[in-house]
Design a binder for these strands. Structure first.
Ligand SMILES: [Zn+2]
Ligand SMILES: [Zn+2]
Ligand SMILES: [Zn+2]
Ligand SMILES: [Zn+2]
Lengths: 192, 192
DNA sequence: AGAATTGATGTAATATTATTACATATCATT
DNA sequence: AATGATATGTAATAATATTACATCAATTCT
């Protein structure tokens, strides 16, 4: 068994999940991001983030738990919830309240993660907006919507309410799943 | 045991909760509202709505369950969840996702429930905006914010996303709880 | 009125999501 | 190596929500 024990600083030898090259790059990037914030990207956290990045729809904590069990370790709920807490705190993922499930922050998925309009610290970490499709289960983070936050800020200002975080969740049917969208892209494959 | 079995159409003899006159009026109003929508305001539903109206902060399903137990009947979770579903469907309450708890729709609490800018059917039923105070636990429904919805509508339009419902939850510190709000109203009493 | 239909409730069991508490291990520094 | 801080393992339990099926009550239709 040639399990090479090469273990570079923050990407240990636990890649039994076969994360794609693209996702591995995203994980690499995430590791740098949280290193910059004084956080450590440990194997558990990396695995959880990788699984969330791999999924095409929001993933629940116990889904993650099941997937993690397939790989040597036998984790319990706290393992997953701690990893999720870490990833949330560092702005790498978001929680969709309506689904009790998690999605990657769109930062990590864009190929040019530099010039994002919302820095993870301020805007994204504690505030995000999502479009949730009831048909395909897909979730889109609205990154181009500072307007929403601006309106909310102005409302809070009027009411002397100090905003610490905000979430906007819009549920409906996405373009691809729209029945009569004369372009017929055909509804995306159902989640399950 | 003189359990009178008198049971008038939609305000039965189950007022062992001592709902205030004001809340009884609101319940009356709610009964008319859902009658207009072809719904029946049964004792269970009335009690649950009354309890939610009575509370000063969002109430969880199991809180309601406990409170209901004090009054003769011995309900189980489905009883509460069914009542909640009904009240949600008729736009009489809202669910705060972040808290897994429920608040009355602000309609019912305003003394002049006629001229509300959002009819229960269209805007309010499926969409609402809230300010949630971390200090006192109070929740304020932002009824004067069609702007938020407008912005969301416009974004959805651009993305060909058909909006069916939207929720906005802003968490922070309310005016009354703000530490140095030179007016010193003093932070509202903690929820518990 | 009596039967059929629908809507609402009772009841038991179970599913899903999340946390607590405490022991152990790992990492960073001295 | 000793220390202190951070991270993980483990078992139990809490909190929230749903399923399935039986019973009951109101409505409608002979
Ligand atoms: Zn984001
Ligand atoms: Zn879709
Ligand atoms: Zn409302
Ligand atoms: Zn407050």
């Amino acid at each position: 068994m040639n399990m090479q024990t090469r273990t570079p600083p923050s990407s240990p030898a636990d890649n039994g999940y076969g994360f794609s090259d693209r996702i591995q790059r995203q994980l690499e990037h995430a590791a740098h991001l949280c290193a910059g914030q004084g956080g450590r990207m440990t194997p558990q956290r990396r695995d959880v983030l990788g699984l969330i990045l791999t999924a095409t729809t929001p993933v629940g904590a116990y889904d993650l738990l099941e997937q993690l069990k397939t790989s040597g370790r036998k984790p319990a709920p706290p393992t997953v919830y701690r990893a999720l807490d870490f990833l949330l705190e560092h702005g790498l993922i978001h929680r969709i309240e309506r689904l009790s499930a998690f999605v990657p922050c769109t930062h990590l998925q864009q190929d040019h993660p530099h010039d994002h309009s919302h820095g993870p610290a301020e805007n994204c970490l504690h505030s995000a907006q999502f479009l949730i499709c009831r048909s395909c289960g897909g979730v889109t983070e609205i990154a181009d919507a500072p307007r929403v936050l601006d309106v909310l800020k102005s409302i809070c200002g009027k009411k002397n309410f100090t905003m610490q975080s905000a979430s906007v969740e819009v549920e409906g049917v996405c373009e691809d799943c729209a029945p009569a969208s004369r372009g017929q892209k055909g509804p995306a494959p159902a989640p399950n």
